[in-house]
Amino acid sequence: MSTARLILPADLRHGNAAACMATLQAQIRNSPDSEVEIEAGQLTDFDSSALAVLLGCRREAESLTKTLKFKQFPAKLRELALLYGVSELLVESA
């Protein structure tokens, strides 16, 4: 099984979150792969909008019955997910 690999930008804040989510969701939708991996290793400047983007991608993948995996979350993003109570929805893959 092949995997589509998507990478979050370094800066993901309220101002660019909608555009980022639209782009990622289109990539998920248009990918012929049944598995999608989102890497967050480059993410350095972000706010809670990053969580909204990841949750939106999760919903998109689920609606298409695709497997979505998350990789390389910065520690601050993990903390933010815990704070907002969504960490169980954004589980990182090994």
Results as ranks from 00 to 15, higher is better:
Cys20Trp: 00
Ile7Thr: 13
Thr67Ser: 08
Leu54Met: 08
Thr65Gly: 04
Val86Glu: 15
Leu6Phe: 13
Lys69Ala: 14
Phe70Thr: 03
Leu82Ala: 09
Ile28Gly: 09
Arg78Leu: 15
Leu51Trp: 04
Ala81Trp: 07
Leu54Lys: 02
Arg5Ala: 13
Gln72Gly: 00
Glu39Leu: 03
Arg58Asn: 07
Lys66Asp: 00
Asp47His: 11
Glu35Asp: 11
Ser87Val: 11
Gly85Lys: 14
Leu54Pro: 03
Ala75Ile: 07
His14Glu: 14
Thr23Tyr: 02
Leu43Tyr: 01
Ser34Trp: 08
Ala26Gly: 03
Phe46Leu: 10
Glu88Ala: 12
Asp45Gln: 10
Arg58Gly: 01
Pro9Val: 09
Ala17Asn: 04
Leu8Gly: 05
Asp33His: 12
Glu39Thr: 06
Thr3Glu: 15
Arg13Ser: 12
Ala18Cys: 13
Glu39Phe: 02
Thr3Phe: 11
Gln42His: 08
Gly15Lys: 11
Glu37His: 05
Val91Tyr: 09
Thr23Arg: 12
Thr44Gln: 09
Glu62Ser: 09
Ala61Pro: 11
Leu83Ser: 03
Leu6Asn: 14
Ala81Met: 06
Gln27Thr: 06
Gln72His: 11
Ser87Ala: 15
Ile7Glu: 05
Ala50Phe: 06
Ser49Asn: 09
Glu35Trp: 11
Gly56Arg: 05
Leu77Arg: 02
Ser48Arg: 12
Leu80Cys: 12
Thr3Met: 14
Ala4Gln: 10
Phe70Val: 07
Val86Ser: 15
Glu62Val: 04
Val36Ser: 02
Ser63Pro: 04
Thr44Arg: 14
Tyr84Lys: 10
Phe46Gly: 10
Val53Asn: 03
Cys20Phe: 00
Leu90Pro: 08
Glu62Thr: 05
Arg59Thr: 07
